[in-house]
């Protein structure tokens, strides 16, 4: 334990002295990693918000099953039971012809006089309002309900929902692809920086091998160097992203009404934590890769 602690002091001292020795490279690679992570973070924020939007869309999603007029109360009840029995349905609420008219009136507001006199011969159909658990299931569920005896029509704004879900899916895939690419780019940036340090010290590494240093003893200072680079780049990028996201929120929330973006405070705490981990991981992988070749003596 004592020895481990002693070694660790050596590793940290050596790691930081590498950084100080190549000051220009340190600044250059921290900046590059920061830039890469800012872009990565932008896509991450987009994905998070798209997920948030998808959740909002999904929770607002409902379909309406319009019933034929000439049904008995018993038949209506049976249809309700049947819909409830379908997989993926979360709730079923009956809306009578009268309720439908009331709702319509409310929607029209001051123009509701247009509907006056309709009470006696109400043209609006009775319906079941069905909520689903997963937006992706909505089409199948609609088809199934359509097949039930006594159901006249089913509507759920097919076009809009399907397009929206399609767009969300594409944004997720593209976003993840770009994030992966930037992840690799960041690793390469750090790996190249560490490689310079390793190369400059290859004689020293060689000597250490002859003295009987273990691979880990040689590796640790470079790992620490890489982790510090990754961590610095990550934390700086979180700062930049927080500023950028703050401005975006001000801009978007004053214009967009249908959806609201995730608030800054929700996003940034998680982001700082994940980026710290991500930065360390990038640094560790980057330096691990660059020292491997030099250990084979």
């Amino acid at each position: 334990m004592d020895m481990l602690f002693r070694n660790f002091r050596y590793f940290i001292k050596e790691g930081f002295s590498n950084l100080a020795r190549n000051r220009l490279m340190t600044v250059a690679s921290v900046t590059s990693v920061m830039a890469a992570l800012v872009i990565l973070g932008m896509f991450l924020l987009i994905i998070l918000n798209v997920n948030h939007m998808a959740y909002q869309v999904e929770s607002q999603l409902e379909l309406k099953a319009f019933l034929k007029d000439d049904l008995s109360g018993e038949q209506i009840q049976r249809i309700g039971e049947e819909i409830k029995g379908i997989d993926g349905v979360s709730s079923v609420v009956f809306e009578s012809k009268e309720q439908a008219l009331e709702k319509f009136k409310k929607q029209l507001g001051e123009k509701s006089y247009l509907l006056e006199g309709l009470e006696k011969d109400n043209p609006l159909p009775q319906s079941y309002i069905v909520k689903v658990k997963d937006a992706n299931l909505i089409k199948d569920i609609a088809d199934e309900i359509k097949g039930i005896n006594g159901v006249d029509k089913v509507s759920y704004g097919q076009d809009v929902v399907e397009k929206l879900l399609g767009i969300i899916r594409i944004i997720r895939i593209v976003g993840l692809a770009i994030i992966s690419i930037l992840f690799v780019i960041s690793i390469v940036i750090i790996s190249n920086t560490i490689k310079l340090g390793v190369f400059a010290r290859r004689r020293e590494i060689n000597i250490m091998k002859y003295i009987g240093a273990t691979d880990w003893f040689i590796r640790w200072p470079f790992l620490i160097e890489g982790i510090v680079l990754g961590l610095l780049g990550a934390l700086l990028s979180v700062g930049v992203l927080a500023l950028m996201y703050g401005y975006t929120l001000d801009y978007v929330n004053s214009r967009l009404i249908v959806f609201n973006l995730l608030p800054l405070s929700d996003v940034i705490k998680d982001m700082a934590l994940y980026f710290a981990l991500l930065g360390s991981l990038i640094g560790a992988i980057g330096s691990g890769l660059s020292i491997k070749r030099f250990l084979n003596v």
Partner: peptide, 8 residues
């Protein structure tokens, strides 16, 4: 050489 082998 002694540091490398973890000497006190």
């Amino acid at each position: 050489a002694m540091e490398v082998v973890g000497a006190h």
